[in-house]
Design a protein around this nucleic acid. Structure first.
Lengths: 329, 329
DNA sequence: ATGCAATGTGTAATCGATTACATGTGAAAC
DNA sequence: GTTTCACATGTAATCGATTACACATTGCAT
């Protein structure tokens, strides 16, 4: 392993000068600079980031905490973050909480010990300890997907997106709309989306039968199962449309409906949220909402970079969404 | 930021003893240990990884280099790697080459400067400089998906998987089988899979018309376009089946076929490779090959961990695959 | 001729950990 | 009563960079 001292010796200067040449700080003569660069080229020398960050307290690494690595949403956000960070020469340190609340907190501390310059948190649940942990680390943290008090947050406009979808279903003439949600511990996906559904139904003078409402766990299978039990529960009083809060659950539900011989959308209209790649290629293609996840990631990275440069950034950003009308409604 | 010195002072011992207590090395009295642990708890102290790894030359971080972050294959592999590494307390430093050969090499060097303990490379192309770069870094590197000379590699059995698929199509009675591949710069996906297709066609006494063969770029759109031009080129001599080397291209092709009123599989059978989530939910569901990507990731992580413990590991591992017969054939 | 600013380089402290080595106990072995 | 050894702790060097400070040289304005 070649170090800065080796380079200094070979170029016949002190390591101070080498450091200056490499970082473009202070004065270095053209002559010395050339000699140093030549040696650096030849040896393939790369400064030790550990030494560097021990001294400078910055690492060029951003930590990302996400709930599940293998979901399309996460991946797209990470891809967006990466694209933006790569421009500034930053790398990503990934951690996956597997939906475990405690890990969410542990990883914040762990990332700090690894001297990351900032943290982007794809939050799922919101609780006191999490907020406290974020306060304690003293490094910039940015949340995506949930609004965390006191933490700059990028949030999807879950309420209006879900409201738009519900209204759209109602406008198509449906009066009996079923709903598959997720746990309320996830305030955005579980809370806001259901609230919007219930509000819009009520505002249109429509009643929500509790037998039409199910709770899944984000998986395709849970969509399938929930659809099954909704239909079972509501015999003689069946809904004519389904609003599932994620594409995956919507697709699971469609699968069950197709098995049972329902025609979509004639017998049952279906909508989801997320604009998953799949949504475009299932039959019929699924009406859904595009949250522009990659854009969100880019925006998050960009904001974090600004924060690292000590620029003031706002506390809350609402992201845009787009309703994609396809053939399932 | 609390350091080991702060802890030492508070616990009224030297920092040596603190270090020993935390790392379970050397002798520490029960009394001192308790005092130290108590302070550590109270302060939430975490050792600086930069200092630690500067001194010990290990970081508890594994670097991953992948061609595209936003593909299902990559994500599954990374999820598998992460699952296994998390058990040992390792983190993942992610880099994305965006299919750029130079970046593949740059990142190897960069990861070294970040003191990663090992590198897992999801390789796409194979070339001299890459091999040389790997030799030069002196840290354990493990490749997935391509066989790199001199580098422990986990490889999918592309040849036999593609051979099985081709045979299966032929057994169903098809004699005119079209093919959508990718660039040969990717020896596994572009080279082996096509070779197997051509070999098996020949061994069955079937001729491959070059008008039936197209080259896409992994994207759904390219599958669509290639299918279009294959049909255009082979008017009057149309194939009755298509073998696309990835699910995404197969799905793109299906999309075009459906638009044109082809019935699948009656007018045209279609197969892909990859067992993407989508493949199960398109209509008709797609016959494909499951490469057990998450397993591959776990295995890779496991092997790398063994290598870090200086155990001998074999040079080459063949991964298993499974043909999933569905309704598109 | 003198002073001052700009330029160029080096010395040595520093970041926060680990660890080789030295030192000091008390108890058991001879 | 000395030797030996296991246990416990501390001193100080070390990892590889950055950077405050000091010093030397040069050119230019006064």
């Amino acid at each position: 392993m070649t170090t800065i001292n080796d380079i200094a010796k070979l170029a016949e200067v002190s390591r101070t000068t080498v450091s200056r040449a490499l970082n473009n700080s202070g004065y270095v003569s053209e002559d010395a600079r050339k000699r140093i660069m030549k040696i650096v080229e030849e040896t393939g020398y790369m400064p030790s980031q550990s030494a560097k960050s021990l001294r400078t307290k910055r690492s060029g690494v951003i930590g990302i905490i996400l709930p599940r690595l293998s979901t399309e949403t996460s991946t797209r956000v990470v891809a967006g973050i990466n694209e933006e960070l790569a421009k500034e020469g930053f790398q990503i340190l990934l951690t996956d909480t597997e939906l475990d609340k405690q890990k969410e907190i542990d990883y914040i501390r762990l990332l700090k010990s690894r001297h990351v310059d900032g943290i982007i948190l794809l939050a799922t649940n919101v609780n006191e300890q999490l907020i406290k942990a974020i306060k304690d680390v003293e490094i910039p943290v940015l949340a995506i997907g949930q609004e965390l008090p006191g933490v700059p947050s990028l949030v999807y406009d879950d309420y209006h997106a879900a409201a738009d979808l519900t209204n759209m279903i109602i406008q198509k003439g449906h009066e009996r709309v079923a709903f598959i949600g997720v746990t309320k511990e996830d305030p955005s996906v579980g809370g806001l989306r259901e609230q919007a559904y219930r509000d819009k139904m009520e505002q249109s003078g429509l009643e929500v039968q509790e037998s039409w409402v199910g709770e899944g766990d984000f998986s395709i299978e849970s969509g399938y199962e929930q659809m099954k039990s909704i239909l079972k529960r509501s015999k003689g009083n069946e809904p004519t449309a389904l609003f599932a809060v994620t594409d995956r659950m919507a697709i699971g539900a469609m699968e069950y409906l197709k098995e049972q011989g329902y025609r979509i959308p004639e017998d049952m209209a279906v909508v989801g949220i997320g604009a998953s790649a799949m949504s475009k290629y299932v039959t019929p293609s699924l009406t859904t909402i595009d949250y522009h996840n990659a854009e969100a990631g880019k925006k998050a990275a960009h904001l974090l970079m600004r924060k690292l440069k000590n620029e003031k950034i706002e506390e809350k950003f609402e992201l845009t969404y787009r309703l994609i009308s396809r053939n399932s409604v």
